[in-house]
């Protein structure tokens, strides 16, 4: 059923009711990001898509002009996943909106275990205004805390609705629960680049260059994140690459791209798919032929606005020529 060799990245969006998952889903579905996303949602009723963008709606699946589809989970996640994996052409990435009472770490099993998939990341959203109260709630407190602990990356939403002091204390509190990057986002405007993974369309022959095509729909002044493409002048030593993945600041929210990796025992450097979300990273041999645009490949980095130092990041990987 899955003809391509590259598994499809699966990203799990978790978080309790009201955390802003649906807002993010709406944004992903209508965004001009150039990816064919398949978004699996619990509740069609909440999805709010401009009707002009809808090309078909067959009851279980909504197809959009930008190539994205939205599919209802309706109690059977495995079936919905199969349905979108069988689409022709296959989606670039699957985003699962976990139910508000699900443990997203459990849902993640569908990412790393389902045939044809790989887990990209578990991204958990938390409402800045309510997360601490929810964590003390007698019915859901334990669950809400467990959701945060299962995250690779936490987005604290509605951060513009609390004072800077409160926001700081919320961020510190979340960090005390979950030892992963914790990022504030405002007005429901999560840059879709944070969610977008390296996908198979990026790996099609000759298209390594398009990994940068995801564009932020926000104006510069509003954007929380900025994106840069690092063109690597030469192959990267594996140990050095692994060290960078482990040690790069948590301000570097996402890393994705193709890197020619040189092994310690010499031999020709080989292209590898590199992914990093929060503390989760992987370096896998690319199984698709890829044109070598630069000596060392390219990495796209999404960083917190104002923290980008591209030269320093490149220096961490490859010595300047």
């Amino acid at each position: 059923m899955i003809s391509s060799v590259e598994p499809i990245p699966v990203t799990v969006l978790g978080g309790y009711l009201g955390a802003g998952k649906t807002t993010l889903v709406n944004r992903l579905l209508s965004g001009d990001h150039g990816r064919r996303l398949a978004v699996l949602v619990n509740d069609f009723g909440e999805v709010n898509i401009d009707v002009d963008l809808i090309t078909s709606h067959d009851g279980e699946t909504i197809s959009l002009q930008n190539g994205c589809v939205c599919c209802s989970i309706a109690d059977a996640l495995g079936e919905s996943l199969d349905r979108v994996l069988a689409l022709d052409p296959a989606p670039d990435q699957v985003v699962i909106e976990a139910s508000g009472v699900a443990d997203p770490a459990k849902v993640a099993a569908y990412g790393y275990g389902w045939p044809g998939c790989r887990l990209d990341a578990v991204i958990v959203l938390a409402d800045a205004e309510t997360i601490q109260a929810k964590a003390k709630d007698q019915f859901v407190g334990e669950l809400v805390t467990r959701q945060l602990r299962g995250a690779d990356l936490v987005l604290v939403t509605k951060s513009d609705l609390v004072s800077p002091e409160v926001l700081d204390s919320v961020l510190d509190w979340v960090r005390s629960i979950a030892a992963v990057p914790v990022l504030p986002v405002s007005r429901g405007e999560v840059d879709s680049e944070v969610v977008l993974a390296m996908s198979r369309s990026d790996l099609d022959v000759g298209s390594a260059r398009v990994v940068t095509r995801g564009t932020s729909p926000l104006t510069d002044a509003e954007a929380m994140f900025e994106t840069a493409t690092l063109a690597l002048p030469g192959p990267v030593n594996r140990a050095r690459l692994e060290a960078a993945m482990s040690l790069w600041s948590q301000d570097v929210v996402r890393v994705k791209g193709i890197v020619w990796v040189a092994e310690a025992d010499g031999g020709n450097a080989q292209p590898h798919v590199v992914q990093r979300v929060g503390l989760r990273w992987s370096i896998e041999p690319a199984t698709t032929n890829i044109d070598q645009e630069t000596e060392g490949g390219r990495l796209v980095v999404v960083v917190l606005r104002g923290t980008l130092d591209a030269a320093a990041l490149i220096n961490d990987l490859v010595d300047a020529e």
Partner: peptide, 11 residues
């Protein structure tokens, strides 16, 4: 170990 809510309390 933990149990599970089949329906979120708010819903």
């Amino acid at each position: 170990r933990h149990g599970e809510w089949m329906t979120p309390p708010e819903r």
